[in-house]
């Protein structure tokens, strides 16, 4: 069987960053609707990374484009084919980026600063502060995170990607890593006393859910068509086993899950540098999840009638 080689780590970075950015904003928006004041430090932290990470992600996509640097005008063509997931994604990401830019600017007080310079900008302020904005961000954020999986999921050619569980997994992972990203920023830059227990609890359950989904997805893949099985085995025991078990499973999921479980149970208190460390582990895991799923993709077999040996 042949591993796909069209998409490589640049794309994994893109998927990852878009996920973290979108995830952090979605969680922040939810928190905003729930109790803005209580979660303000988190919301601000999410605002710092939300739009920028998505943009950096897009930048990775951009430098991966064979022609992006030389013929930037071709980017306009990204919108012309309605059947292409890239077209959907470009649209969603564009909307999400604009919204989250506005939202972030508002949260961080940058919008006010601009309004001082250019008064007419004040028309954006009610929008940025509105519940509509929160809903719009939640929806486009989930779409963004989901899109990073749909991009892969629509491809019949790679059975391992062509699974319904994939978007769900990616959305959960995006939320989880989004929280981690925001937490790291909060710990570093918005040191004000905050009570984020709810978010931490949510984070713990998201990680547990992610573990369960991953197990489920692999179990299904193992029972699936030979190509899926091959991909799953490539992760579990094959080419990618070391990265899978060490970086994704152990460091990216199990260690954080155990630590957060102790925190939940009140047996442990982590904050400051330690918290940053564990959140970074979650983030690394989030990257490896995408990296590995991307690389473990194998093409559907062309010749089903023969046992293939590629020379």
């Amino acid at each position: 069987m042949e591993f796909q080689t069209g998409f490589h780590w640049y794309i994994a970075v893109y998927l990852f960053l878009a996920g973290v950015g979108a995830g952090s904003i979605v969680v922040a928006s939810l928190a905003d609707m729930y109790d803005r004041q209580k979660y303000l430090s988190f919301i601000k932290a999410a605002s710092v990374i939300g739009m920028p990470l998505v943009s950096i992600g897009i930048f990775f996509l951009y430098i991966d484009l064979g022609q992006g640097m030389y013929k930037p005008w071709l980017l306009l063509l990204l919108f012309v084919n309605t059947t292409s997931a890239i077209m959907w994604g470009t649209l969603i990401l564009t909307i999400f980026t604009i919204l989250s830019l506005l939202y972030g600017a508002y949260n961080l007080g940058i919008l006010d600063w601009f309004i001082k310079k250019a008064g007419f900008l004040k028309i954006f302020k009610p929008l940025a502060a509105s519940g509509f904005m929160n809903w719009a961000l939640i929806i486009t954020g989930i779409l963004t995170a989901g899109y990073t999986a749909v991009l892969l999921g629509v491809l019949k050619a790679i059975p391992f990607w062509h699974q319904t569980a994939l978007p769900i997994l990616f959305i959960i992972s995006a939320s989880s890593t989004g929280i981690s990203g925001a937490m790291v920023v909060k710990e570093l830059f918005f040191k004000e006393e905050a009570h984020l227990a709810k978010i931490e609890t949510t984070h713990f359950y998201l990680i547990m859910l992610e573990i369960l989904l991953l197990i489920g997805m692999l179990l299904i893949a193992l029972q699936g068509v030979p190509e899926m099985k091959f991909s799953a085995l490539a992760l579990l025991t094959g080419e990618f086993a070391v990265e899978f078990w060490v970086f994704l499973v152990l460091l990216g999921l199990v260690v954080p899950a155990v630590v957060f479980a102790f925190v939940e149970a009140g047996k442990l208190h982590v904050s400051g540098g330690k918290l940053v460390f564990f959140e970074l582990l979650v983030l690394a895991g989030g990257y490896f999840l995408r990296h590995l799923i991307l690389h473990a993709g194998v093409y559907t077999q062309k010749f089903t009638d023969y046992i293939m040996i590629h020379y």
Binding site: G6, L65, A157
Partner: peptide, 27 residues
């Protein structure tokens, strides 16, 4: 002239018939 080199078509092909032409920056 239109290809941006996004590579998306490459994993989309069930026959693995495509590759990325690094010299030209296109599929």
């Amino acid at each position: 002239r239109k290809c941006v080199g996004c590579r998306y078509c490459i994993p989309s092909c069930p026959y693995n018939a495509r590759f990325f032409n690094n010299q030209l920056g296109v599929a």
